[in-house]
Deep mutational scan, measured.
Amino acid sequence: TIEDAIKKLLKLAQKGQPYTFGDFTVTSEEEAKKLAKWLKKQL
């Protein structure tokens, strides 16, 4: 689910690992949080 993807994304971001989700490449926890907010709006 999208919720699971968001959780995984935040965990990876906390470890400092870049994470690619579709067109987004997230390289920081701050970016992960922005992406998570955006994804929730898409639901």
Results as ranks from 00 to 15, higher is better:
31 E>A: 11
18 P>Q: 07
34 K>N: 05
7 K>Y: 07
35 L>F: 06
41 K>R: 07
30 E>K: 09
36 A>P: 00
16 G>P: 03
26 V>L: 04
23 D>Q: 12
6 I>T: 00
40 K>F: 13
12 L>A: 11
5 A>M: 14
11 K>A: 13
10 L>G: 01
16 G>H: 06
3 E>M: 14
25 T>L: 13
30 E>Q: 07
8 K>Q: 10
30 E>F: 12
23 D>F: 15
4 D>Y: 09
18 P>K: 06
33 K>G: 03
38 W>R: 02
28 S>C: 14
8 K>A: 12
18 P>Y: 10
40 K>T: 12
3 E>N: 05
6 I>H: 01
6 I>F: 07
23 D>W: 15
14 Q>S: 11
8 K>L: 13
13 A>V: 12
1 T>Y: 10
32 A>P: 01
1 T>I: 07
41 K>L: 09
33 K>D: 06
22 G>A: 09
25 T>G: 05
37 K>E: 12
29 E>H: 09
9 L>H: 01
35 L>C: 09
41 K>A: 10
39 L>D: 00
31 E>Q: 12
14 Q>D: 06
43 L>G: 02
19 Y>G: 07
42 Q>T: 08
35 L>T: 00
20 T>E: 06
28 S>Q: 03
13 A>C: 15
27 T>N: 08
25 T>H: 11
21 F>T: 02
14 Q>E: 09
35 L>I: 04
7 K>C: 15
25 T>E: 05
19 Y>T: 05
25 T>K: 07
12 L>R: 08
24 F>L: 13
6 I>A: 01
23 D>G: 12
25 T>N: 06
22 G>F: 14
3 E>H: 11
36 A>V: 13
31 E>F: 12
15 K>E: 10
31 E>K: 04
6 I>Q: 00
11 K>F: 12
27 T>Y: 10
4 D>W: 14
21 F>M: 04
17 Q>E: 12
41 K>P: 01
22 G>Q: 08
39 L>Y: 02
30 E>A: 10
11 K>C: 14
7 K>G: 03
36 A>Q: 03
5 A>P: 01
1 T>L: 12
27 T>Q: 04
9 L>R: 00
13 A>D: 02
39 L>H: 00
40 K>M: 14
23 D>T: 12
24 F>Y: 06
29 E>T: 10
5 A>Q: 07
15 K>V: 08
41 K>E: 08
43 L>V: 06
29 E>S: 05
31 E>T: 07
5 A>N: 02
17 Q>G: 12
10 L>V: 04
27 T>F: 13
30 E>T: 08
27 T>D: 05
10 L>P: 00
2 I>T: 02
13 A>Q: 03
39 L>K: 00
24 F>S: 03
28 S>M: 09
6 I>K: 00
26 V>I: 12
35 L>S: 00
16 G>T: 07
35 L>R: 00
16 G>L: 13
3 E>K: 11
34 K>S: 05
18 P>N: 06
39 L>C: 13
32 A>K: 02
39 L>G: 00
